[in-house]
Amino acid sequence: MRNLITDVRGLLIGQAHDPVAATGVSVALFERPTVASIAILGGAPGTRDTALLEPEMTVEHVDAIVLSGGSAWGVSAADGVMAALAERGRGFPVGGLRIPIVPQAILFDLLNGGDKSWAKGGSAEPPYRALGRAAVEAAALDVALGTAGAGYGATTATLKGGLGSASARAATGQIVGALVAVNAVGSATIGDGPHFWAAPYERDAEFGGRGWPAAITPGDLGLRFKGGTGQNTTIAIVATDAALTKAQAKRLALAAHDGLARALRPAHAPLDGDIVFAAATGHSGAPSDAFALAELCSTAADVLARAVARGVHAAAALPFPNAKPSWRDRFAS
């Protein structure tokens, strides 16, 4: 167990970033067509090809799932992913053709200090198509955390955000993992201190081992907000090696949102576009009953909460004026 989403058999993670533009892309690449669904609980989401993930829709499987920075410009990352997968013969067969099924979610990282002249009417092309292709080519079991992939340019209300991952074995024996780009309108830490809201779920001091503060005051509970409309969004993937139907994957995605609520204050805000994809690679069989599915759902929420804290804990500040400090800058000593 690497404590990464790639502990789930049947998937790899590829990542690519542009340090000048301060943005990036993460791709979950499935070894075979995989059942997936989605739950959107934030008020300002940005997506591509996600309607097909609803249980009543015809397409049953996906080839990859993309998380990207860049706001609406970022949706072109899926173009690069599709092109790379088409070259490998992947995709839904239609009349002798193959169309890779690649849903995507985006976050807003346009005001983090990077050079995004293409968002200001410049002649340069946005980097996302190239980053999507590069991410597929880089797909591996290892997953860089913090200022990496879709979390490269991410921020929170108080600290640098980032890319987080975690995994666990459920009581059923099946593996659940999470990957998240933390770009929240709120905060992952309690008040102005180093303690994470996700502290009760931490394993092996994976995000500093600070536990809870001695007390949580009314001031600590006061909301801290970042930016304005559209400048946020936490996007995530939870995956399991269980075999699930699309309806069960939908339930897994909905339950995993509890992890965002445990790790971020606030979550699911009108100014967030909080999205969770759920994928089931099917390597370990179906849950035996509704109680077994509930075990997977509970594990998914815990794992996602831990992944959020790991992403913020591992992040490094961007090298730009007025950049958000990292957790390590403020609290590591």
Results as ranks from 00 to 15, higher is better:
residue 143 V to L: 03
residue 163 L to T: 01
residue 105 A to F: 10
residue 121 G to F: 13
residue 110 L to H: 02
residue 123 S to T: 14
residue 99 I to F: 15
residue 129 R to C: 06
residue 129 R to Q: 12
residue 118 W to E: 09
residue 135 A to K: 09
residue 108 F to G: 01
residue 160 K to W: 13
residue 147 T to C: 12
residue 147 T to F: 14
residue 109 D to C: 03
residue 152 Y to Q: 05
residue 128 Y to Q: 00
residue 112 N to S: 11
residue 122 G to Y: 06
residue 152 Y to C: 05
residue 139 A to M: 04
residue 122 G to Q: 08
residue 116 K to L: 10
residue 132 G to T: 04
residue 149 G to R: 03
residue 98 R to W: 00
residue 143 V to A: 01
residue 121 G to T: 13
residue 104 Q to E: 15
residue 154 A to K: 04
residue 142 D to V: 01
residue 110 L to C: 05
residue 150 A to E: 08
residue 102 V to K: 14
residue 149 G to M: 01
residue 97 L to M: 09
residue 162 G to N: 03
residue 126 P to C: 07
residue 134 A to R: 05
residue 136 V to H: 15
residue 126 P to F: 05
residue 144 A to E: 15
residue 163 L to P: 01
residue 142 D to W: 01
residue 98 R to N: 01
residue 158 T to S: 12
residue 163 L to Y: 10
residue 160 K to E: 11
residue 112 N to W: 07
residue 159 L to D: 08
residue 140 A to F: 00
residue 154 A to R: 09
residue 106 I to Q: 07
residue 160 K to D: 13
residue 106 I to C: 09
residue 151 G to C: 07
residue 154 A to S: 15
residue 117 S to M: 04
residue 136 V to W: 14
residue 121 G to K: 15
residue 150 A to H: 11
residue 97 L to F: 11
residue 97 L to D: 10
residue 99 I to G: 01
residue 103 P to F: 04
residue 110 L to I: 04
residue 113 G to V: 14
residue 111 L to M: 06
residue 135 A to Y: 12
residue 103 P to W: 07
residue 121 G to I: 14
residue 109 D to K: 08
residue 148 A to C: 05
residue 140 A to N: 02
residue 101 I to Y: 07
residue 127 P to I: 00
residue 157 A to K: 11
residue 158 T to I: 02
residue 98 R to G: 00
residue 137 E to L: 15
residue 97 L to V: 00
residue 116 K to I: 05
residue 135 A to Q: 12
residue 132 G to V: 03
residue 112 N to T: 05
residue 112 N to G: 10
residue 160 K to P: 12
residue 154 A to W: 03
residue 115 D to P: 00
residue 160 K to F: 12
residue 108 F to E: 02
residue 120 K to W: 11
residue 160 K to I: 06
residue 98 R to C: 00
residue 112 N to D: 11
residue 127 P to W: 02
residue 123 S to Q: 10
residue 131 L to F: 09
residue 138 A to W: 12
residue 108 F to S: 01
residue 157 A to H: 13
residue 117 S to F: 08
residue 139 A to T: 03
residue 145 L to A: 02
residue 120 K to Y: 11
residue 154 A to Y: 04
residue 145 L to W: 00
residue 124 A to I: 06
residue 158 T to P: 00
residue 105 A to K: 07
residue 120 K to L: 15
residue 120 K to C: 11
residue 139 A to D: 07
residue 119 A to C: 11
residue 137 E to R: 15
residue 125 E to W: 08
residue 133 R to F: 09
residue 106 I to T: 09
residue 114 G to F: 04
residue 97 L to A: 09
residue 150 A to L: 04
residue 107 L to D: 13
residue 107 L to R: 08
residue 142 D to A: 08
residue 106 I to P: 00
residue 119 A to V: 03
residue 135 A to F: 14
residue 137 E to F: 11
residue 132 G to S: 09
residue 141 L to T: 12
residue 152 Y to D: 01
residue 101 I to L: 13
residue 129 R to V: 01
residue 162 G to F: 11
residue 161 G to F: 13
residue 133 R to N: 02
residue 151 G to Q: 13
residue 105 A to E: 13
residue 121 G to E: 10
residue 128 Y to H: 03
residue 127 P to M: 02
residue 98 R to F: 00
residue 140 A to Q: 04
residue 142 D to I: 00
residue 98 R to K: 07
residue 141 L to N: 05
residue 102 V to P: 10
residue 140 A to K: 01
residue 97 L to E: 09
residue 101 I to P: 08
residue 143 V to E: 05
